[in-house]
Write a protein that binds this DNA or RNA. Structure first.
Lengths: 342, 342
DNA sequence: CACTGCATCCGAAACGTTTCACTAGTGTCC
DNA sequence: GGACACTAGTGAAACGTTTCGGATGCAGTG
């Protein structure tokens, strides 16, 4: 069944077969030196017949230029993260660089171990996709292994490059939409305030509130952890108020889904009794009933840009300021004007 | 901003700092030779103060034993695949092996390139998560880079080790459940018949049909590609029949979701007008309205087992026969007895 | 004391690349 | 015709490990 598996051919084999020196082979393989067309062809042929593949380990041992990057993602099961990851992979594979993926949630390993893993691999840089957790601790340990670019997160103090979407603007827009429908008694389910996105979104909501003549400080806000379960819990808390809020503005889709679940449980209709909006626009959100109104971020694009920024940082040592990516609000069925109660 | 970044310390530095030879350091680092306790401590200390991390590239260049495996996954956005991936990662990180992830969909690269990537990295083996595509072509190219274990797929001819769930049994059970509700006019939306799972599930359905006294050959079956869109299209086709089927049995959740979408579009109620069941039990399926009845497979476990099987294969050269993993059918709201029509 | 055996330790040769420094060969120009 | 600048090609030294074979010291034998 399993063949004896002989060891793969090396450059030396190629050189021998093509009757040239080792260095010549290397030169043609990466265009790094002059070689006569006739000989070049000889080695190309040899490569073909031997089915030669360069040994990346050996290469990496010598090279300087970036050929593998690390990526840290909190949770692959979250579609948003998955899409960002795809974006990164795409950008990387276009440049033939390898990305080593660290998914801590899956491995339940402490962040310290992740950092070690990355350093052992001598990754040239890392893309850090910020998640539900706190990061400051890990970030600096990781920064030892190379340049970092953040995705979907910004850390104010440090000047770390970050690729983010216009969270604030999108948040303002979606909140404004809710208010335009006539809602005055609204509440917010926020994200973890340690995260930039959570703070930005909240700020955006408050801008919209102020713009509509509401007192932002009067609007109840409870922060969750961006997970469905906490959305469910917080919705229960918020909807217990009297008078009951007619709209719940959620800082991400998972929270919104949790809120919808809670409504389903207690028999509140969405949107007739409670309007709900989310953020992220996960693919699954449009499958819900009612289909969730949400703000979409260009997840793949963010991943792609992040990788590009990292390459730029690696090549040039500096990365030009990147514009925040646009968000768009997708109006669907989970919002309607508040119904006259009784 | 970016510090000058000096090159990381090497074993030589450690050796110098601890006043021992290079080889001694190597010995203590991997317990591969005798060294006096006092000296051992010296190098351990040196490692600590220098914050030394072994260079994996250099290691891999020398070593024989498996320290990196490859994983091919069709589409990270699919939660089922994401969960399997997490399982693999977990098993791998427990053994300190690196997994290099190839996600073709993201990179739109031909399968040939994936195989190359893996070979360049000299992966010791690969776990292949079969997806929507056809595989036979790629498989053999990939097999050159090392042993393979398949997940969620079996290729009959070859004796390739495979980790799968009891698709057939699960399929039979869920179909039986539908029939028990009294449905007699049912139809099947199948998966791509090139895939083992699709064939197994269909076989399971047919067993159930026969068991309930139906003629399996009389039940309409149309094969889709396991994607939502084709579920939608096929549902339209199937439901156009007269009399209209009262239940749609779908080979995976995405197809089922597509079918539900179609029903929503044309105003058919689920489950009153059409009962629908799926397969895979994606996390999102229980969020739908109605919540989808589906067969769940232990995705993470499958990934975990696959990685373990690969290690076994690598260590022992052979892998003991693995039992198919159990499936369970989750009864929810998308099935009810057929309603008397007019 | 010469010999063996054991426990530690070390030097040096790989592993498969890249790349610097150098040689040979060709043609140009005064 | 010799100095010169090129071009094409080579040899060999790295890169950071692992590991084999041999040194070294020292205890215990005969």
């Amino acid at each position: 069944m399993t063949e004896p598996r002989r060891k793969p051919p090396t450059m030396k084999d190629v050189a021998a077969h093509a009757q040239v020196s080792l260095s010549t082979v290397s030169y043609v393989l990466n265009d790094s030196g002059p070689v006569a067309p006739e000989r070049r062809q000889r080695v190309l042929d040899a490569v073909r017949v031997l089915n030669y593949m360069p040994n990346e380990s050996a290469r990496k041992l010598k090279r300087r230029s970036p050929f593998t990057i690390g990526m840290i993602v909190p949770d692959l099961t979250n579609q948003f993260f998955a899409m960002v990851t795809e974006g990164v992979q795409k950008a990387a594979s276009a440049r033939d660089v390898l990305v080593v993926l660290v998914a801590p949630a899956a491995a339940e390993q402490p962040e310290e171990k992740q950092a070690q893993l990355l350093r052992r691999q001598r990754v040239d840089g890392v893309v850090y996709l910020s998640g539900t957790g706190s990061l400051p601790a890990a970030i600096h340990e990781i920064a030892r292994s190379g340049p970092i670019v953040l995705v979907d997160e910004k850390i104010p103090g440090t000047g770390l490059p970050a690729i983010v979407a216009e969270s604030r603007k999108g948040a303002r827009a979606v909140a404004a939409h809710v208010l335009e429908q006539g809602h005055r008694n609204v509440a917010v389910i926020g994200g973890p305030m340690a995260l930039w996105t959570a703070r930005q979104r909240l700020a955006g909501y408050r801008e919209a509130f102020a713009g509509a003549g509401l007192d932002p400080d009067a609007v109840p806000v409870i922060a969750g952890d961006y997970q469905q379960e906490s959305g469910q819990r917080i919705a229960a808390e918020l909807l217990a108020a009297d008078p009951r809020p007619t709209a719940l503005i959620c800082a991400n889709d998972l929270l919104a889904i949790g809120a919808m679940e809670h409504c389903r449980e207690v028999g509140l209709r969405v949107p007739e009794d409670v309007s709900i909006v989310g953020f992220d626009d996960l693919p699954l959100s449009r499958l819900l009933t009612p289909r969730l109104t949400s703000v979409s971020q260009p997840a793949r694009e963010m991943g792609y840009r992040a990788a590009q920024a990292l390459f730029e940082l690696l090549d040039a040592g500096e990365v030009g300021p990147v514009a925040d990516l646009p968000t768009t609000v997708n109006l669907r069925d989970s919002v309607c004007p508040p119904q006259e109660s009784t």
